[in-house]
Write a protein that binds this DNA or RNA. Structure first.
Lengths: 130, 130
DNA sequence: CCCTCTATATGTATATTGCCTATAAGGATT
DNA sequence: AATCCTTATAGGCAATATACATATAGAGGG
């Protein structure tokens, strides 16, 4: 098993071969979360569990992905030195990011079709209950 | 666009960010094809279009993936020097490969759920027709 | 003072990716 | 026989992606 599966322990090793890479799928999830409301990395890290990411998801991956999204102009950020606690970087979705979100939706629907093609063939061989 | 999307031209460049890497998803597709009947790389290359792979899918990727599956003991192969044409390497699914196929089915169903979670949220924001 | 929680960021070894090119057999065309 | 296409397999490589570990730092509790 691997930490790509929700609920897995960190560092348990992975032999399953993955499928959907963590950081890649994280991108559209972050974009859609930021479409709903602007937020900072640590908060987004926790919201990501709603999309099936592990509760032990590596924070470094989230911050790195956010920086990359900013490099690509899909999100913007500014420092938020507010009421107590360390300073946080507040991210917002850009217009370009919203466009990319639509592109991702198309892409993900395609991927899902491919998975359905696989699962249908699988069930036609092994049966539904398997 | 990129050659991950079926119908794309080879070498047209990719800025979409992918999602499901070609060679990763190719693995369960090859296993299920080999479950149905033993076959060789070039034939499998063409059968893969049934799972949404591009008709211009790079043959090198297919052969490399097959070799990797063999290294992992999921498939076996032997040379088939038969009636006309170049020699072909005939691949068959191993017992271990069939087990891995079941593991993949579980995994892909999980991935599908995650995509559904994304698409549902997407539709709740932008509407179904979008 | 130490520990935990919040919060952000970097380093690194290894694996994976897409693309290009090489090799070779056989058949058809010129 | 020379050229070309199709079938068939394989290796190289630069760039990127990955998982995991580690660094930094503020604030609050015990």
């Amino acid at each position: 098993m691997c930490n790509r599966h929700s609920g897995d322990k960190k560092g348990s090793g992975c032999r399953c071969g993955g499928g959907l890479p963590v950081e890649k799928f994280m991108q559209p999830c972050l974009l859609i979360l930021l479409k709903q409301r602007s937020s900072h990395g640590y908060d987004l890290l926790q919201q990501l569990t709603e999309f099936g990411f592990s509760e032990r998801l590596d924070p470094g991956s989230v911050y790195r992905t956010l920086r990359r999204l900013e490099d690509e102009g899909l999100v913007t950020s500014h420092w938020d030195v507010g009421e107590g606690g360390p300073a946080r970087r507040l991210y917002s979705l850009s217009d370009e990011g919203e466009e990319m979100l639509h592109a991702w939706a198309v892409h993900i629907r395609q991927q899902r079709k491919r998975m359905d093609a696989f699962l249908e063939r699988y069930q036609s061989i092994f049966g539904k209950q398997d």
